[in-house]
Write a protein that binds this DNA or RNA. Structure first.
Length: 554
DNA sequence: AAACCACCCAACCGCGGTGCC
DNA sequence: TGGCACCGCGGTTGGGTGGTT
């Protein structure tokens, strides 16, 4: 970066060349500034020379002393950054090589946004450099509708995560993502749940919360990281910045811990479930699931925790085209001032306002995907059910949840926390196990190297409805089956009288799997419905394209 | 030629962790 | 044990640059 013109080259600044802020705020310079006005902005070559000289003489560290001893009017923080990113020896400049790019992708798949750790694997590269590279790369890939991770990287990361015992809490290995298999939910979360009982009409059950968020924030974006070709960028950005700011603020006001909750839960959920990819707060991730619009989310179906979705920092996010809220915005942004409380939002989500014409289209299954259609049906069912069973579900679960301070999906035992059995007699955990087992990924054993290949083979019958792009992404999305199953079973338990609702659900799905199904296949591929979880009868199940059956239990 | 736009990247900011007193 | 200073990290911002209209 070029230097600004109004700087002298000696590194000593006149008053007007410095920031007006004094640096005794503890943030930059600590108390070392002593009222000295320090310079901000681009470094000059003279400043660089002073810093280099200082480090040569005194070594790295004690950065706040630099200003004291060298006459450099920079805070220690700034000095450290300058040294680390530009001045230290052995820094590699220039564009990333292909090998480096590949490594970054792989590392990011394993580590997420751990730039410093990634930089440790790339000699001569800085975390800032990698971060900038990744951010621009994300944008580029988003624009071009490519997945964040190439399939082979997904495969590798998945295999590594399983081989390092991500699911069974075994070897914690060196991967960050796997280091925390014990799902420790901060007490504050439970506090928020407890206190929010007065706010939330339907107190969310923790497994639903975590898996919902996991699905919303993680699986759909990282595993199923297909980034649909975006629409006009400016338009998206413009609308994104106005996307329900009032509501977001309202929810945070009502339940300020939602912010922390969503971050912690999503992050830990990803770790707990052994996801090889972090649930990354990347823009498309969050937007993909705004308000459960993303067809893979079951959040709405269980009628629980739907109010938790909007606060996903949506205001800064870009929206994938397949759910671009040309119409949704019209619906969702109709909150009047003052912003709605959670009750109203939840009620709003569960009982979409009467719509007509375009508005109706925006929420109908027709243009939002198969699972959306299912959700549309399920929503109505669970909504009705939830209202009738509200008290019983509320009285049983939150306390149980709150008593558990750890949340390891495989070991702490959801059953112990009152985790329901699925209609098929599977607990959520067992469903998960079976699902994984069925798809070639045993919880305990090494996954076969051909895991994805097998899925590819299985998916072939559905090739006629798969575009090459979808086919490319399908294996990634398949992994979603497990948490999805969890969700579904949980939903069935709490929201359904199974005997009755199964029939309704089956009919709904059968109806919805009609002629226009192919257009929904992409979404189905990304969520991989389990027939058992959904309670489909064999006939309906067999009528589903293979791409939807890939998680079918043996 | 000017305005606009997108991209890139250096630098800043806030926060959390750690060590010392 | 609490306060403080320092350090490092990750997210964000803002300016420069090159391309396009």
């Amino acid at each position: 970066m070029s230097h600004t013109n109004n700087e002298t080259e000696d590194g000593i600044l006149s008053r007007d060349q410095t920031e007006s802020s004094l640096i005794d705020d503890g943030n930059c310079g600590g108390g070392s500034g002593g009222g000295v006005v320090l310079k901000k902005g681009p470094w000059t070559t003279a400043e660089d020379a002073i810093l280099i000289e200082y480090v040569k003489k005194h070594g790295e560290g004690n950065w706040n002393a630099v200003q004291k001893h060298s006459g450099l009017f920079r805070c220690g923080k700034s000095c450290r950054l300058r040294w680390a990113n530009h001045l230290r020896p052995n820094l590699k400049k220039g564009a990333f090589t292909q090998e480096e790019e590949q490594l970054i992708i792989e590392l990011h798949a394993k580590m997420g946004n751990k730039w410093a750790r990634m930089a440790a694997h790339l000699p001569g590269r800085t975390d800032n450099e990698i971060k900038n590279y990744w951010n621009t790369r994300i944008k580029r890939r988003q624009r071009s509708g490519l997945p964040l991770y190439p399939p082979e990287v997904c495969l590798q990361a998945l295999q590594e995560s399983h081989s390092t015992g991500a699911f069974n809490g075994g070897d914690k290995g060196h991967h960050d993502i796997l280091q925390n298999n014990s799902y420790e939910i901060p007490d504050v979360i439970f506090d928020s749940l407890k206190t929010s009982q007065n706010v939330l009409p339907y107190v969310p059950e923790l497994p639903d919360i975590s898996t919902s968020i996991m699905l919303m924030k993680g699986l759909g974006s990282q595993y199923c990281s297909f980034m649909p070709p975006t629409i006009h960028r400016q338009k998206r950005l413009r609308e994104a910045t106005t996307f329900l700011p009032g509501y977001t603020a309202a929810v945070k006001n009502e339940c300020p811990l939602f912010e922390q909750f969503q971050d912690d839960i999503s992050d830990k959920a990803s770790r707990s479930f052994g996801l090889p990819f972090p649930i990354e707060p990347d823009p498309a991730t969050k937007n993909s699931f705004q308000f459960g619009v993303f067809p893979g989310s079951h959040t709405l179906s269980n009628g629980n925790f739907s109010a938790s979705e909007p606060p996903f920092e949506s205001v800064k996010l870009e929206l994938p085209s397949f759910q671009y809220p040309e119409t949704e915005l019209g619906n969702w942004c109709t909150f009047s001032s003052p912003p709605p409380l959670l009750e109203s939002v939840d009620a709003f989500i569960q009982s979409p306002p009467p719509t007509s014409g375009a508005e109706s289209d925006s929420l109908s299954p027709r243009n939002s995907g198969l699972l959306d259609a299912l959700l549309h049906e399920a929503k109505a069912l669970s909504s009705a059910k939830n209202h009738t069973s509200e008290k019983s579900s509320n009285s049983a679960t939150p306390g149980d949840i709150a008593e558990s301070s750890t949340f390891n999906i495989c070991e702490t035992g959801w059953e112990n926390c009152g985790v329901p059995l699925s209609p098929m007699g599977h607990s959520a955990t067992s469903l998960l196990s079976e699902c994984i087992s069925a798809s070639g990924n045993s919880l305990d054993g090494q996954p076969p190297a051909e895991t994805f290949t097998e899925w590819h083979v299985k998916s072939e019958p559905a090739d006629h409805v798969l575009t090459p792009e979808i086919k490319k992404e399908a294996p990634i999305g398949l992994v979603n089956c497990c948490p999805d199953t969890l969700l579904a079973s949980s939903w069935l338990e709490q929201g359904c009288d199974f005997d009755k609702d199964q029939t309704i659900m089956t009919d709904s799905i059968a109806t919805l799997l009609g002629d226009g199904f192919s257009e929904y296949t992409n979404m189905a591929a990304g969520t991989s419905i389990s027939s058992h979880a959904w309670g489909l009868d064999s006939c309906t199940w067999n009528n589903m394209p293979a791409v939807c059956q890939m998680s079918e239990l043996p």
